[in-house]
Amino acid sequence: MSFSNEVREEIARSITDRDRKFACLYGILLYCRTFHGQQIILQSESPVFAELIPTLFHAVFQTVLKPDVRVTTRGNAQSMYSFTISDPAQIQQICSTYHISPENREINLSNLVNNSLSSFLAGAFFSCGSVIDPNKGYHLEFNTPSELLCNDLQKLLLTIGVRGGQVFRKNMYVLYLKDSEHIEDTLTYMGAQQCTIELMNIKIRKDMRNRANRIRNCDEANIDKVVSAAMRQTEDILWIIRCNRMETLPEELQELAQLRLENPELSLKELGEMLSVPIGRSGVNHRFQKIAAIAKELRSHEK
């Protein structure tokens, strides 16, 4: 399975209540390629997308509105899933429900309630987004159908501190991210926390390999030990963030957690030297033990 589909699978599991489903379907509809008064077509090669669409339409429109479904096989044996709506009355119902003007599509924030903005972004990703395997590089993009929608999406990402670039390619306005931290923030915001951890783990391995190449006398066993410890610490910190408990930690633990996320390749000694009040390796290790204990307690509550 591609990394993009792993992301889609995980964010699909986060689309749970009706508000999230409403927002997700809005993102899919708004950012699909074909949307006009005569026809709406939703297309993807993702099986997750194919399973999600009927669920979303049922949640929002019950049994009143059902797209026509078509599955075609391409030359590479890859299936293409198409959901088509051609009934003018049904198209009008969609436009009325979501306040969409087919001639001038733009984000209407009144459609997004109860913190469902992340689900809307997930819907946009389902409709026009992709992310490459982080083993090959760092690149996430949205192939948007208009300049207005591209600009709107860029403004939305800025609200979570993510800045992307734009390029016009093959009649599509592409919003792209190449900064690994911005990609991590976007994946986490959309609900793909485990994929974020996978990306960060890959980045840690890359950083450690590069560091090993620069330092000839570096011991391979020590690298593995540092990598494993950094991965565990990063997973604990991300779990605490996912549980919205980061702000409840003592300031010294918050500072250390932020430094670890920003510097996954550094040793405990190096992290200790970067603290506002520097401490030794053992002191840093003691603080990480406290973070691990908090994460363990949160995980037990989750179970």
Rank of each mutant, 00 (worst) to 15 (best):
F3D: 00
S4T: 15
E6V: 10
I28S: 00
L29K: 00
L30M: 02
L30H: 01
C32N: 08
H36T: 06
Q38H: 12
Q39K: 15
I40H: 01
S44A: 08
E45K: 04
E51L: 11
L52A: 06
H58G: 04
A59W: 06
A59P: 03
T63C: 12
L65E: 11
P67R: 00
D68I: 05
G75D: 11
S79W: 09
Y81D: 12
S82F: 01
F83I: 06
F83H: 05
F83L: 09
F83M: 07
D87M: 04
D87R: 00
A89F: 12
Q90P: 02
I94K: 06
Y98R: 05
I100S: 03
S101V: 13
P102R: 03
P102I: 03
P102Q: 04
E103V: 12
E106V: 11
E106Y: 07
I107Y: 04
S110R: 11
N111F: 11
V113L: 12
S118C: 07
F126H: 03
C128A: 11
P134R: 03
T144Q: 01
L157N: 00
G165Y: 08
N171I: 07
L177Y: 05
K178Y: 06
H182Y: 15
I183Y: 09
D185L: 12
T186S: 14
M190Q: 06
A192W: 02
I197Y: 10
E198P: 01
L199E: 03
M200L: 13
I204R: 10
I204E: 09
R205E: 14
R209Y: 12
N217E: 14
C218A: 15
D219Y: 10
D219P: 04
A221T: 14
N222V: 13
I223G: 01
V226T: 12
V227Y: 05
E235H: 09
E235R: 13
R242I: 06
M246S: 13
E251F: 08
Q254E: 09
E255T: 04
E255R: 05
A257T: 02
R260A: 05
R260D: 05
S267E: 08
L271G: 03
E273M: 07
V277Y: 14
P278V: 04
S282Y: 10
S282R: 07
S282L: 08
R287I: 10
R287Q: 10
R287F: 08
A292D: 15
I294K: 02
A295L: 08
R299L: 13
H301F: 13
H301K: 15
